[in-house]
Write a protein that binds this DNA or RNA. Structure first.
Lengths: 289, 289
DNA sequence: CGATCGTTTGACGGTGCTCAATCACCGTGG
DNA sequence: CCACGGTGATTGAGCACCGTCAAACGATCG
């Protein structure tokens, strides 16, 4: 019901007529340095010297690859809008998703010491990125302490997010991983000023499964479990969080929904109406292993 | 729980008599800026202006806590020697290990944007860290482009390592996770100029299990599996990699040791002598899920 | 020597992976 | 317009892996 209306649909591109597909548009206008600083999380006031400097801005179509793993890299990218997936292709052909970076995040900074991209970056929706050649970036940072501090802040946040990612994946039960993933996604939506409860996931079940380290069928089932418990309302990629506390409780327990939610498979048939059948118990005691 | 022996003791520490325990020594000499730059991975030649500047250097005893989660943070640390574990204590009391940073890695940079440590950092062995107040660091970076570039390089590497961490944890089978963990550890040893095959793990099974998101018994069993397959020689925390290719092959398959290694539990009794009983089959085809 | 903790191993039960079929949605071509 | 193929999502059946509980062993420290 949702996918048709959205402009930026897709993994394998539904909604994007094959005709207008083209990798990525070098054109588009340019951005201002002050906007970049604000995006990175720096202080809003453009105290820097070169506040009105312009920066190349690229538009990336949904499904297009911004750069490939192993490619020569001499610039870093900062996402202005849109969501990407960073992935590495293992030698058996399996696509390992490593992150779903979004607005404000820095792409390809790892390449700074190697000269080559460590991952591929594919846009999951229409996106827009700043392109910052490292030489130029170093010069600008030297000249403008505000930009410099903003970049440091962004890198610090990114390292923090990496920790959150590990925490997310370290959960043992599949539903717990999914719950943590959803809360992670929700908090990012909140940071962006969008609704933290109404989530429009732009990635496929398979991509989520790859990141979480489970089978994609298990992701589907876990969605069903959480929905069956009244925590979520799931309609394909349109997910609504109904019970934040319950979800958080599920997240906390290292072992899946404790005995208070006896792991019943979701109602076959009408998943919609049966949502709040059994409201989540507030959570009693969570066990550690 | 373990807090009785307070001054930074923790589950695993053998080898440090309780008598000489004391949190962390503020004293110790100071380090030179050029050494720090080299440690961070910068160009060796100290082209910077203030190459002989001195930096406070702290010694951290094995088991001591360098900083606590949530603590106010106004400086970052760079590990000169030793290994730490970064952890967060979930509210059910479970200790979630997030990383095992080692020499050359930056600790606490996430706090740059929040002002508070995102994790606790506990030394797993005798360690030594540079202490860099952020204000001072910013000033030094401004004055010395070599230091600045070195720090950028270090941060880039660290982000790359975060990706490797995700890749490690995304494996579905437990032995694959452990194999990836061992190869990760091995490559770090190699970077440090130490033996990549003879590993002296300074962390407990429980810590490894926490990071990998499995039960600690499973870690033990997986060690047994890999040893039974002739890939490893395991003696408590003293691990020797016997067959790098086999281990890498195991690593590659998203699904654990393929059918060529029929997952036999290790020989009960003398695990030592029975190591190379059945040499690892070279690996035929790995399947993806 | 006894206490404590880390490591290993066993047994059992449940979760989740595999294989497979089905449905829904979209784009293409008749 | 509708049949057809392709992809994503969901659901089921079967079984192996792994988490839980339990016990035993070893090392270290008091």
């Amino acid at each position: 019901m949702n996918t048709t209306t959205m402009p930026g649909r897709h993994p394998a591109d539904r909604g994007v007529p094959a005709a207008q597909r083209c990798p990525l548009l070098p054109a588009a206008p340019v951005g201002r340095l002050s906007d970049l600083v604000r995006l990175l999380g720096g202080e809003a006031q453009g105290a820097g010297a070169s506040c009105d400097m312009t920066i190349p801005l690229w538009r990336v179509r949904s499904g297009a690859t911004l750069f490939h793993e192993g490619a020569h890299a001499d610039s870093v990218h900062v996402i202005r809008s849109g969501t990407f997936k960073c992935l590495r292709t293992l030698q058996d052909g399996y696509e390992q998703v490593l992150a779903f970076p979004g607005p404000g995040e820095v792409l390809g900074f790892e390449a700074r010491c190697g000269g080559h991209q460590a991952t591929s970056a594919v846009a999951l929706e229409e996106a827009c990125v700043y392109v910052l050649p490292v030489r130029q970036l170093d010069r600008w940072r030297q000249a403008d302490p505000v930009l410099d501090r903003a970049l440091m802040t962004a890198l610090g946040r990114q390292l923090g997010r990496a920790g959150a990612m590990v925490e997310m994946m370290a959960a043992v039960a599949a539903e717990v991983r999914l719950a943590r993933f959803l809360l992670w996604f929700s908090s990012r939506m909140a940071e962006l000023g969008r609704s933290p409860s109404r989530l429009l996931l732009c990635m496929s079940r398979r991509d989520i499964a790859s990141l979480l380290g489970v089978a994609h069928e298990t992701v589907s089932r876990s969605f069903g479990m959480l929905a069956g418990g009244g925590l979520l309302h799931v309609d394909n990629r349109d997910v609504e969080i109904l019970d934040f506390e319950g979800l958080r409780a599920c997240t906390h327990s290292t072992r899946g929904l404790a005995e208070e939610m006896p792991r019943r498979p979701p109602r076959t048939g009408g998943a919609k109406a049966a949502a709040a059948s059994q409201a989540a118990v507030p959570l009693a005691g969570t066990v550690l292993r």
